[in-house]
Write a protein that binds this DNA or RNA. Structure first.
Length: 271
DNA sequence: ATGGGCACCTGGCTGC
DNA sequence: TGCAGCCAGGTGCCCA
């Protein structure tokens, strides 16, 4: 998926079209997403206005008057704002139709994305309740990370990708943040020094912030609300660069597998 | 509690 | 040209 920068870019792109609009319909073409989508959802949504669009971790929260739509993009999902009559593409699974003659259209080839209707405080929803702090907000600092990492034997790469520890960091930005902070992705979380946690926190913030400014990273599927890709790919130091020279020292970038995911790192810059 | 592995899905690419 | 095998921005769940 889309990691935090891609979800945040999507949020910024869809917000102005959605906020204040009334929902005039909901078209569900494929309800078999990660979890089955309620086929009667349109009955609930129609007539409500969009209050605002928020993000928590990699979830988008579309706040309506009587509840919240909780949307996840999975690995290959994207949300676009389009005219209601825009031609359909394969894997266009649902449309949230607005009174502006536009719609919010969800496309997701792999169908790992999800959509839930939540009433009450969305933070209490089971999918959100156990999540860690937002990396770009207070609450994510070296003290916090070091405390969480104590006695943990998992590799630091998997540790920073654990959404219960900190949210928003996925496979691309985990490799990139570890490169920027000079930490070997194999190192046990509990054996990372205090000084290195300081650098890691800074690197996570920097890489996510820079990626948001570039509109995210597009590898294959990801496009923003206007259908254009993100440009952070050019700024990647290690991700998908196996065999190519390290941009800092020239050593060939290495790739290996951790937890069924590819990790990329520079064996000489990261210890 | 922690760690590890699998599952869910489609599509693009590689190599025989 | 066809097809098997592998890989891909995520994460809930099950097992030891």
């Amino acid at each position: 998926m889309p990691e935090l920068p891609e979800v945040e870019t999507t949020r910024r792109g869809i917000r102005s079209a959605l906020r204040g609009s009334a929902i005039t319909g909901f078209v569900l073409r494929e309800h078999r997403l990660r979890w089955p989508v309620d086929r009667q959802l349109g009955r609930e949504l129609t007539g409500q206005h969009v209050v605002d669009v928020h993000r928590r971790a990699k979830y988008l929260l579309i706040e309506l008057e009587r509840g919240t739509l909780l949307s996840h993009l999975g690995m290959s999902g994207s949300l676009r704002v389009l005219p209601v009559d825009a031609p359909l593409l394969t894997h266009d699974h649902y449309d949230l139709v607005l009174d502006s003659r536009q719609c919010l259209r969800f496309n997701d080839p792999r169908r790992f994305g999800s959509l839930h209707w939540v009433t009450g405080d969305p933070e209490l929803h089971p999918l959100l309740a156990g999540l860690g702090p937002e990396p770009l907000e207070r609450g994510f600092d070296a003290d916090y990370l070091a405390a969480k990492a104590k006695r943990r034997r998992v590799a630091i790469k998997q540790f920073v990708m654990d959404q219960r520890i900190v949210v928003g960091v996925g496979n691309i930005y985990a490799s990139e943040a570890l490169f920027r902070s000079g930490i070997n992705p194999r190192r046990a979380a509990g054996r990372v020094s205090r000084e290195r946690f300081e650098r890691l926190v800074g690197a996570v913030r920097d890489v996510l912030g820079e990626a948001i400014r570039q509109g995210g990273t597009t590898l294959r599927d990801y496009v923003n609300a206007e259908g254009t890709p993100g440009y952070f790919r050019q700024k990647l130091f290690v991700y998908e660069r196996a065999g190519e020279p390290c941009r800092r020292c020239g050593t060939p970038i290495r790739q290996f597998t951790q937890g069924q995911r590819s990790t990329y790192y520079c064996p000489s810059c990261q210890k």
